[in-house]
């Protein structure tokens, strides 16, 4: 790929304090406060259970908030895996004379209804009946759709 050519646009400029730095600072502060709160919670558990539960609740909420922030603000590197995907394509050929069916990998120049190659079983010519993406069984998920 010719990726060295000049580009039409530019990446968004990042100047001054970046949002990711602020996020990190918030996470650290909340984390420290939550840890201290949890410490007090465990320390005062035997003496005063109501106070202990309150501290533990505050600590747990702090960690929940951190989890929420991390979950929402996904890092860019985690998102950009394969940007332009490539699918595996297969071509199905059928002989109109003897109904022989054959599946092979797609070759550039294949198109649906093209008279492609001689039939291996009879003297007919095989026609491309389908060009489609190969099914990926691993990626199928049951969504639990209400029907």
């Amino acid at each position: 790929m010719m990726k060295t050519h000049s580009q039409g646009g530019s990446a968004p400029p990042v100047t001054g304090i970046t949002a990711s730095w602020v996020n990190l600072a918030i996470i650290v502060v909340i984390g420290i406060l939550s840890l201290v709160s949890l410490y007090f919670g465990f320390k005062s558990f035997i003496e005063d259970q109501i106070t202990a539960y309150t501290y533990l609740l505050i600590g747990a909420l702090g960690f929940a908030a951190i989890g929420y922030m991390l979950f929402r603000g996904g890092r860019p590197s985690a998102q950009s895996k394969m940007d332009i995907p490539r699918a595996e394509i297969i071509t199905t050929l059928e002989c109109p004379k003897c109904n022989l069916r054959r599946v092979r990998d797609f070759k550039q120049g294949d198109y649906v209804f093209k008279n492609d190659e001689p039939c291996t079983r009879c003297d007919g010519v095989m026609i491309i009946s389908r060009v489609n993406r190969k099914k990926e069984p691993d990626k199928e998920k049951k969504q639990g759709v209400i029907e």
């Binding site: 990446a11 968004p12 990042v14 949002a19 990711s20 929402r72 603000g73 890092r75 998102q79």
Partner: peptide
């Protein structure tokens, strides 16, 4: 925080 997410998408 929202700008951060928009920036990541934009990249």
């Amino acid at each position: 925080q929202m700008l951060n997410q928009i920036e990541a998408t934009l990249r």
